[in-house]
């Protein structure tokens, strides 16, 4: 927003005379497309959201909404939907951790052990993107069907009992319409967003460093935690952010795989915006979610301290 952005300062008492004006403006012209893009796709929608979060809640779509600096919307929205908010962060958090553990093993295998299968494995990681997000999620509904063999198997090995004990299912005989199904859906759908950045940073790790760690008395496990893992931290940070942020705001998985007791904040926002047409609460809730996520990301990135890493 400041006038100096992107342009080198021009000395006013330059003895060589006045510089061509076009040259001075080049910097501005170059940032124009980016600035326009930002304005149209971020600034305006963001202001619109902010405005609607401060609408007078007595308004309606039919009678019109007026912005009255009604900050009470925030408290009302938070109070009413804190359950869904907390649940979203919780589900997204678990899904992110599972993605990290499973994705790390996968990315590690692709980066270091896959040999000539490397490219094929990478394609397989991306392959789910070739079909629609919605269709893939729906197909999990078939896989987890109450009468399907997956549930039968899970019952036979008492997985359903175990999940019930840890609270990831609500009854002991099914998988669909439980937190387990929602978290599984989130994990499945966002896994590539974890694997790809992890792979990218693991692939850059110099194998000689791992050898050096071994040479310096680090067992393979210690070498991993002292060298490989710290060096892959940029990938870990990128992967967890790319997984957690969309997962926390997701509503499709909860909608299709969950039940009424597993609704996430995305479902609430979607319902408020599209069926209840309560723009004030919907706007306030969206802003709350955004603030929580931005704050969490800032704390996380600062704690992880990735700026020192190569």
């Amino acid at each position: 927003m400041t006038s100096t952005a992107g342009v080198p300062p021009v000395s006013t008492n330059d003895a060589s005379g006045v510089k061509p004006r076009g040259r001075k403006l080049t910097g501005y012209w170059l940032i124009l497309p980016g600035a326009l893009w930002l304005l149209i796709f971020f600034v305006i929608p963001f202001y619109s959201l902010l405005a609607s979060s401060l609408f007078d809640p007595d308004g309606s779509v039919l009678t019109g909404y007026e912005m009255t600096w009604h900050f009470g919307n925030y408290w009302d929205a938070f109070d009413q939907y804190k359950g869904q908010l907390w649940r979203s962060l919780w589900y997204a958090g678990i899904a992110t951790i599972i993605c990290l553990v499973v994705g790390y093993v996968l990315a590690y295998a692709i980066a270091f052990k896959a040999g000539r299968w490397k490219n094929l494995m990478l394609v397989l990681v991306i392959a789910p993107f070739f079909t629609s997000f919605l269709l893939r999620t729906l197909s999990w509904k078939l896989i987890f069907a109450d009468d399907g063999w997956v549930v039968g198997f899970a019952q036979a090995v008492h997985l359903t009992d175990l999940l019930n004990i840890v609270g990831l299912t609500t009854t002991d005989d099914r998988l669909l319409a439980t937190p387990f199904a929602v978290i599984a859906g989130l994990t499945y759908n966002f896994m590539p967003f974890m694997v790809l950045p992890l792979y990218a940073s693991l692939e850059k790790v110099d194998l000689r460093l791992i050898e050096a760690a071994g040479d310096l008395y680090a067992s393979p496990a210690r070498g991993f935690f002292r060298v490989t893992f710290p060096l892959s931290l940029p990938g870990v940070v990128a992967g967890t952010l790319l997984t957690f942020i969309p997962a926390a705001g997701d509503y499709v998985n909860a909608q299709l795989l969950g039940s009424t007791n597993t609704k996430m904040i995305g479902n609430s926002i979607q319902s408020l915006f599209t069926t209840q047409l309560d723009y004030a609460t919907a706007g306030a809730l969206s802003v709350i979610l955004m603030v929580i996520i931005v704050a969490a990301v800032m704390i996380y990135v600062r704690t992880a301290g990735t700026e020192d890493l190569v």
Binding site: Y47, A51, L54, G59, T63, E66, M67, Y279
Partner: peptide
Amino acid sequence: LKGVGGLAFVGGSGLALKYAFNTDDQK
């Protein structure tokens, strides 16, 4: 300049929020 710019930004934002996004009566 910075102060004036900041004030203009805050004021402009406020005005935009106040007037740019209200919705009309649909009757």
